[in-house]
Design a protein around this nucleic acid. Structure first.
Length: 738
DNA sequence: GCTTGCGGTATTTTT
DNA sequence: TACCGCAAGC
């Protein structure tokens, strides 16, 4: 595509960002301002104008989904794929780097990757072996602290020297022991990937320079969510004056609790003094009242750059506010309203997962199909993880955790006693636990010895297979993993089906040229990135999971003090993050936005009276349409607003609080539909279309919600009456049309 | 090694 | 209220 054509449909700000030349560039991209468009067009523009060659492009995102979308859109613009460049997540980049240079990074050739569960499991063992009694140092706290340390690039030693009290010292001590255990198992956890990649580049200057010369153009998406390690990685790759484009919006930073540093984007110009800054000021998503209300809300935050977004999406209707009696009443109202709003995409967004229940109950009662985003993910299901443990042991022969898990299921008579023998033997011989098990120490009971030799015969058999799919099939046939589950029980059938899905996924990975090790790496990094069902039907989602999505109609529910904003001990920074969360929720809406709260809410079994969220009070009333039945008497405006600390709040916020009552009567409630139907309703050359009814041998009857990918790689998101949402590959799953 | 019952706990979770 | 993790008992 030529240059003019590329730029033709961009607005002025977008064009400035896209056509920036060399040197650092910060693109402040407000909600709905065409962020991804700018990023992808910029890559295409750099290539089309000959400024960059494709192998010089390094584009990083946070999710696989975002990476895939970026790659696809660049490909669409260019007419061919980006060859030799890198488009992927931070973690994928880091892992790739470590895989290419394991020894320089101090890792064994075939190191394993531990996910969050493994990390917890190993830490648990460390706590036990150090004799740490739970109450003072619960696993969760330790895990969070260790993770935070790595994200902040602190080694165990550095953490120890920064310790302020004995508790900190003990955490540093546990951290150190944990790292030793990881090393012994030949494994890295998620946080290590970034940490070790940074360490690698800091120590190997020749390698760093080589990468810097190769990847001359760096682009980073969602920069507001980067942590210290990620920012450092970017810095190492680019140096002080890089051709670096970062795109982000501090108002949408919602991962502080995971180490994200808003300061990275707020102080970008300090880190890169000659940076150019472009602000994308036009919002193409939300109708005017929605955008104005959201802007008024976020103006109450102080740690941000003041900005103005103008709506390009039309006038629309006011934001509806509804006070429900309790959470069931809230659900009833929402489902009533959304029934009248079809067609068009609808989302119900809430702060905590627990809030989905009443909505699910009501949707089921009224037979409205819906999808819950999140829930137990495919790759986190016990049966899938059991099978993966075997496969991991095939690829990484020292992986202790994988061995412990695999040997346990199905039960084969190797229990606690045998494991104690094995641990001792491993220590004595100076080998890993699985290696010790392979040698079958003579102290073991005969039953355990037989079990172990059969177990390793299976592992070796699986290892001898040449493709990932063959390996998985061999495993399923030889391990008895399938036989644990009955054919009558509904749950068990779902488990069997999930193992079939694993086989399908391995086959599909094989088609893309991945071997077993490659498949496992992908799985480790993937964790369900494919299954967002945006654009399908009614979506129930947490605010976090809704980021980056958009819907014609959004119900933001549970706007109560303590719930949104959610408070625990809550410092001011937390309060600002809660406000950003509400902001993200509101700006997901295209045409209609509803804000609801319940004056009584059952929480932890106790029904308690609530107060409306301060966020409701922060919205200009003339943009709102109060639909509450008790209007005027008990509506949120009559509730005494008790601001936490007015003096500490920015002037803009206080100004915005001086609201005046709306003069006009309530506008009519006509619902606007986007022209030509809504959403990414893709069909597929093989004839799969959303809405199609299908039957699956295990899951029964269902409806196709979404068609992803094309031709041979089609995946269908199907909602089954009994089994809920599943992602299937139709060429492998035995799907029938009905 | 598997089941049962008790008590403690209760966000958000891109990889 | 509901679930999870753990310990005791089969």
């Amino acid at each position: 595509m030529n240059e003019d054509l590329l730029l033709a449909t961009l607005d002025e700000d977008q064009r400035r960002a896209v056509t920036h030349g060399e040197g650092p560039l910060l693109v402040l991209a407000g909600a709905g301002s065409g962020k991804t468009r700018v990023l992808t067009t910029r890559i295409a523009w750099l290539l089309a104008t000959g400024r960059a060659r494709s192998h010089e492009i390094l584009a990083v995102t946070f999710t696989n989904k975002a990476a895939r979308e970026m790659a696809e859109r660049v490909e669409a613009l260019l007419g061919n794929a980006l060859r030799g460049g890198f488009v992927g997540t931070f973690h994928r980049f880091a892992l790739q780097l470590l895989r290419r240079h394991p020894h320089e990074a101090g890792l064994p050739e075939r190191f394993a990757v531990y996910d969050a569960d493994d990390q917890k499991g190993l830490l648990q063992q460390v706590l036990k072996s150090l004799g740490v009694a739970e109450p003072e140092l619960p696993l969760k706290v330790v895990r969070a602290r260790v993770s935070a340390a790595k994200n902040a690039l602190l080694s165990p030693e550095k953490l120890a020297s920064a310790a302020r009290n004995s508790r900190d010292e003990r955490i540093a001590h546990i951290y150190k022991a944990y790292q030793q255990r990881l090393a012994a198992a030949g494994a890295v956890d998620f946080d290590d990937m970034l940490y070790l990649a940074v360490a690698l580049l800091e120590q190997q200057d020749a390698l760093r320079r080589g990468l810097a010369e190769r990847f001359r153009w760096l682009l980073v998406d969602e920069y507001q969510d980067t942590n210290l390690a990620q920012a450092r990685l970017v810095r190492l790759l680019g140096g002080p004056h890089p051709n670096l484009t970062v795109v982000g919006d501090e108002d949408q930073s919602i991962y502080r609790w995971r180490g994200a540093e808003v300061e990275n984007i707020l102080r970008f110009e300090e880190a890169y003094p000659r940076a150019t800054v472009v602000t994308l000021g036009r919002n193409y998503r939300s109708a005017e009242p929605i955008l104005r209300a959201a802007a008024a809300l976020i103006a109450h935050n102080s740690r941000r750059r003041p900005k103005q977004l103008s709506s390009q999406a039309g006038a629309g209707v006011p934001v509806a506010v509804f006070q429900a009696a309790d959470e069931n009443d809230e659900a009833r109202f929402v489902v009533d309203e959304l029934a009248g709003v079809f067609p068009g995409t609808v989302a119900v967004l809430y702060r905590t997962n627990a809030q989905s229940r009443p909505f699910e109950a009501e949707l089921v009662r009224r037979s409205v199909p819906y999808v819950v985003v999140g829930g137990t993910r495919f790759w986190e299901r016990a049966e899938v993880k059991d099978a993966l443990a075997y496969l991991r042991l095939v690829v990484a022969p020292d992986d202790e955790l994988a061995f412990r898990r695999a040997i346990r299921v199905p039960a084969r008579g190797v229990g606690e006693v045998a494991m104690d023998h094995l641990s001792r033997a491993a220590a004595q011989w100076g080998v890993s636990l699985p290696q010790a098990a392979r040698r079958c120490p003579p102290a073991l009971a005969p039953r355990a010895r037989i079990a172990l030799s059969e177990f390793f015969a299976l592992i070796d058999g699986v290892a001898a297979e040449t493709t990932a799919a063959a390996a998985v099939r061999r495993l399923l046939d030889g391990s008895g993993l399938l036989d644990q589950y009955s054919v009558d029980d509904e749950e068990d059938r779902a488990r069997r089906a999930n193992l079939d899905q694993l086989l399908a996924a391995a086959a599909e990975a094989g088609e893309r040229g991945l071997d077993l090790a490659g498949f496992l790496d992908e799985v480790a990094l993937l964790s369900d990135a494919d299954t967002s069902a945006a654009g399908a039907t009614v979506v129930l989602s947490t605010l976090h999971a809704a980021k980056g999505l958009e819907f014609d109609t959004v119900f933001l529910v549970g706007l109560e003090e303590g719930l949104l904003p959610l408070t625990r001990s809550g410092d001011e920074a937390d309060a600002e993050e809660e406000r950003r969360l509400a902001y993200v929720g509101m700006t997901r809406a295209r045409r209609r936005l509803y804000l609801t709260w319940a004056s009584l809410r059952r929480l932890y079994g106790q029904q308690a009276e609530t107060r409306p969220s301060r966020f409701l009070h922060e919205l200009p009333p003339h943009l709102l349409d109060d639909r509450s039945p008790l209007q005027g008497r008990d509506s949120f405006r009559t509730h005494l607003h008790r601001p936490t600390s007015d003096a500490a709040r920015p002037a803009a916020a206080q100004a915005a609080e001086r609201w005046h009552r709306p003069a006009a009567a309530t506008p009519s409630q006509t619902v606007a539909h986007p022209p030509g139907g809504a959403g990414p309703r893709r069909s597929d050359p093989n004839g799969w279309r959303p809405g199609m009814k299908v039957r699956h041998p295990t899951f029964g009857h269902g409806v196709v919600l979404q068609v992803q990918g094309t031709a041979a790689q089609v995946r269908l998101v199907v909602f089954f009456d009994r089994a809920g949402r599943k992602v299937l590959i139709p060429s492998l799953a035995k799907l029938e049309r009905v």
